[in-house]
Design a binder for these strands. Structure first.
Length: 430
RNA sequence: GGUGGGGUUCCCGAGCGGUCAAAGGGAACAGACUGUAAAUCUGUCGGCGAUGCCUUCGGAGGUUCAAAUCCUCCCCCCACCA
């Protein structure tokens, strides 16, 4: 079986690891358990969490048992790592509900059946902790002198914001989690983002001190786009994995619009396509890169939203931006449909409006506002005046232009804002 | 608890009685150029069925013809001291 460390290394997942040789041997010996913690701060994961999720998926594909740890308990405290300001503290109910939602999303990537993977919640052991016993048993193993040298704490100690005591304890709790995972699931490997290094190492130390056992840590690099932005941050907010928050079409578009310079890296990190095929992409130029971006978008959309939604997004994009067929030898392992397509599927955002609105007629800018293509009437007027608004493919430059039933073809009409934002309006009776 | 400095439109940050919907930068959006990329240049960037009207400068009052700017009280943040 392929060694999972080789896979992760080759695909760009690894920033740092502890006990390099020992870890490799340990993983090669037999199937192992490994875990990654996920914050239940929102009811959906977003693209920023994709790297850890894919890492767990690779673990499973290589025969190991991934454990997703939902921070139901630590979520009540707040991790200062990588944050420049104090996090909002959530209620237990919210955290619990979010944890449930996260499992459903993780199930897209990881097979939880028959205990091939586990989802555990650290609220199970953290919430009932007694303060004095915890301080006595766990706290005594931690040196404050050392803790304040950790990057995550130092950053906050030096900031104006300061570091609250509750957050200062976060490292102990996460270390305690690791200890629990060792005890309960024989899980000796924790992975996480590079900002988790300090917390992971604290856990490894605690396991050694209290159990005289070896534990391992692996961290992932912080993935940023070529322009330096964090993954998944757009003007509209985060790109979520939940279709109700970010539609499959929008999700697909996020990937198609990635920077040229990111393409190969992203294919390696965010798809399961073989590396030898991905490496060949590096030779592509100009417009051909867009074809490879299509594959990237299709593959990752398929993983998150399913094949049907991915095909619809592909078709919708094809009908609006034009479609070129994909050569068979471009990333041949991809199951993307290489030709054809059925026009704009259902993935294009659609608003249904009553026909009566258009008997009198509606000003064009108002329609742009109603459909959400513009945030306000003023924004709609600006857009139109600047030549960025289209009705059925034709640029409209008069913001007061009255739209009537005559503008509809087969009860439908297609609006466009700028180059990329399409919206369909469909008539309803009444 | 004491002393000092602050809270401005998405973010940073000017403004310190009228010329302020508020400089400048960033982000964002549109146009040109392109490949649904990047870079660059140009324009826009509170709301309104709109050459005018309405609501903004931590909150509530007050002074004034006029307040982001002055006064009072309150809330929050920061620094130093304790």
């Amino acid at each position: 079986m392929t060694h999972v460390l080789d896979v992760l290394e080759e695909r760009g997942f690894i920033e740092a690891k502890t006990h390099e040789q020992e870890l490799a041997d340990w993983l090669a010996e037999q199937p192992r358990s490994c875990y990654i913690g996920f914050d239940p701060t929102a009811s959906s994961l977003h693209i920023g969490s994709l790297v850890p999720i894919m890492a767990l998926a690779h673990m499973q594909r290589c025969g190991h048992r991934p454990i997703a740890l939902v921070g139901g308990g630590t979520g009540l405290v707040g991790d200062p790592s990588g944050k420049t300001e104090m996090r909002q503290i959530l209620t237990a109910e919210t955290v619990g509900a979010n944890a449930e939602a996260l499992k459903a999303q993780l199930a897209r990537f990881i097979d939880f059946s028959a205990d091939r993977a586990l989802l555990v919640n650290n609220a199970d052991w953290l919430v009932s902790l007694g303060y004095i016993p915890f301080l006595r048993d766990i706290g005594r193993h931690f040196s404050v002198n050392r803790m304040i040298k950790a990057e995550s704490y130092r950053m906050r100690l030096e900031s104006d914001e300061g570091l609250s005591f509750i957050e200062f304890n976060y490292m102990l709790l996460q270390a305690y989690d690791f200890l629990k995972l060792v005890d309960r699931y024989d899980c000796h490997l924790q992975m996480g983002g590079s900002d988790q290094w300090g917390n992971i190492v604290a856990g490894i130390d605690l396991v050694r001190k209290m159990r005289q056992k070896t534990a391992f840590g692996v961290t992932f690099p912080l993935i940023t786009t070529a322009s330096g932005a964090k993954m998944g941050k757009t003007a509209a907010g985060a790109v979520w994995l939940d279709a109700a928050r970010t539609s499959a079409y929008a999700y697909y578009q996020y990937w198609v619009n990635c920077d040229d310079a990111d393409l190969v890296r992203f294919l390696a990190l965010y798809t399961f396509l073989p590396m030898e095929e991905i490496r060949r992409i590096a030779g592509l130029h100009d417009a051909d890169l867009n074809l490879a971006k299509t594959v990237l978008a299709f593959e990752t959309t398929q993983i998150v939203h399913g094949r049907q939604a991915a095909i619809e997004a592909l078709d919708a994009a094809g009908s609006m931006f034009g479609r070129r067929s994909l050569p068979q030898d471009l990333l041949p392992s991809s199951t993307i449909p290489r030709t054809g397509g059925q026009g704009a599927g259902e993935s294009v955002p659609t608003t249904e409006l009553g026909a009566d609105l258009f008997t009198e007629g509606l000003p064009f800018f108002k329609l742009m506002q109603i459909t959400g293509l513009s945030n306000s009437g003023g924004a709609a007027r600006r857009l139109i005046r600047q030549g960025g608004a289209y009705l059925n493919g034709e640029r409209v430059t008069v913001d007061e232009k009255i739209i009537t039933l005559a503008d509809f073809a087969e009860e439908e009409l297609l609006l466009r804002a700028g180059k990329k934002h399409f919206h369909r309006v469909r008539l309803t009776k009444g």
